[in-house]
Design a binder for these strands. Structure first.
Lengths: 128, 128
DNA sequence: ATGCATCCTGTAGCAACTACAGGTTCAAGC
DNA sequence: GCTTGAACCTGTAGTTGCTACAGGATGCAT
């Protein structure tokens, strides 16, 4: 059993975020001591860590919740998990292509900017 | 002189966003008709378009403002513009690498998920 | 005169936190 | 037993850049 600070250290989820997750129903409400302080079991810490890993992979919170629910089921069907993973992968890949287009646009725009010039090709392109 | 709807169509900035920009001081306050409706000059529409192009390139609003200010100066030094562009490029590039790491992690995690399996390697990795 | 598009203000919601303010409780040292 | 400082509590507001109403006024065409 750990206090919230220890749970935070062990899970890598900031204290404020843990409380936020509880408020939002992402995780179950923690038990409390007589004086009202939250108490976390090892399993609760593992849940926090699980959620954090999902977030690190870019899964939105609702999906992270679903994945955790799946992971708690005995009968967890791998293919459902895989579908979430693949759809997340799709999204990440399309963000990557978007950003790559941005990057090449920015490269082109900055490439012709010469120091001291009063006629800036980048500004010209933004204006026209 | 255009009403806000026309300014929106011409600049590609949604009406609500134009009002938001005005509230936030991103653009100058528009003139009003006797009855209180906003009125946009050709120059104001150009400003909106400029801001939109900056946003499309991923520049944050405060930077978009600075770029517009620079673009209005006679003495605009190209090198300052270039610096903004390069720093934006840096940011885009680092986001790309982050996302590429995510993508490869997701590829690895999903690769071994086989249909019907009750032991999901992806869940195992999220748990451990 | 009527109806419909367009406009107005003001407020709230989104995602996922983060950062206070203002107050209680716990634990360690003296 | 008392003090002090860390850690905890609730509740609210701010972040970024919009977007979506609600509820009402205005403009224009028929």
């Amino acid at each position: 059993m750990h206090a919230i600070g220890e749970a935070s250290r062990r899970s890598g989820v900031p204290i404020e975020t843990i409380r936020y997750y509880e408020r939002e129903g992402v995780i179950a409400k923690a038990e409390r001591t007589a004086s009202g302080r939250r108490v976390y079991t090892e399993a609760a810490v593992a849940e926090l860590r699980f959620i954090r890993r999902c977030r690190d992979l870019g899964f939105p919170l609702p999906i992270a919740c679903k994945l955790y629910a799946l992971s708690s089921e005995e009968t967890a069907d791998c293919s459902e998990v895989r579908d979430f993973g693949l759809s997340q992968l799709d999204e990440v890949n399309s963000k990557i292509s978007e950003l790559q287009e941005l990057a090449s646009a920015l490269e082109e725009l900055t490439a012709n900017c010469a120091e001291g010039s009063t006629k800036c090709p980048m500004l010209d392109r933004l204006r026209s």
